[in-house]
Amino acid sequence: MAIQNKAAANKNLDSIRKTIANHKRHDFIFASLGTLVIASLTITLLILFLDLVIDGYPRFNLDFFSNFPSRRAARAGILSAWIGSSLVLLVTFFVAVPLGITSGVYLEEYAKKNWFSDLIEINVSNLAGVPSIIYGLLALGLFVYSFGLGQSILTAGLTLALLMLPIVIVSTREAIRAIPVHIREAAYAVGATKWQVCHNHVIPYSYGGILTGVIIGMARAIGETAPVITIGALTFIAFLPPSPIGLEPPFINFEWLESGFTVLPIQMFNWISRPQLAFHINAAATGAVIIMLTLLMNGLAIKLRYNIRKKIKW
């Protein structure tokens, strides 16, 4: 009897051990699966990058950056594209950053909690979800034809500014929200007005967070293609816009805003669309330039955010 009991107990124990071993195996299998998925994502990113660099390698020389696009692939360069990209981003920066920061400050510090601020908030989060090509259509109908700005650098800059705006607004709000109330209370206690509190305390303390958002937004704007194509940007540009800085007074001119242009991703798209393989090399080289820029900027933003999180202790 006793022996039988013991055998039954042993059997029971065995089955429990088996179950536990089984469960542990499931744990192990899932953990390996997770590692595998993440490793393959990382490798994909790496392959993507290396593929562009290797394919585009023959074009990595100074001529590529100082030549206009050409019908002969080996002599074609991205001069007009990178200058166009820089000028467009300049416009984007000066439109989106002030608007985004003030809008964020209003929503976080001034707006009272009511249906109206809810409405603005819903709008901001919806705008972040609107496909980028819709912004292109908006710009085509509004900026190009209604406002008569044409297919110019100004139009492209404004279009990308619309895209970047929600990113700047959201990051501004998050940065402001992280500032504890007692900072504001201390300022109010010594008689500061609301604007003084914002201008001297809230905004300066949230610079890091805002900057992170601005960098991420700019990185996105560099690679954004669809909306710029939609406004009708030309794909073959063999001239430069008038220089923004002159040697004679008044030194700065704004004629470049009305100039035609092309940008890096459009140049790349144009070269991919051609059947000749030689142009695909150019496309890869351009892609390598774009991806290096965006990876650098995103990396910078991530580093910045990490530093802020580590450094600031209120």
Partner: peptide
């Protein structure tokens, strides 16, 4: 370590992904 890598993947421009799809 992983989260920043995922963020970098988000930052890759779509035109580059297009090249990737067509050529690779």
């Amino acid at each position: 370590i992983i989260k920043p890598i995922l963020e970098l993947l988000v930052g890759v421009p779509t035109v580059v992904f297009g090249y990737f799809a067509l050529m690779l």
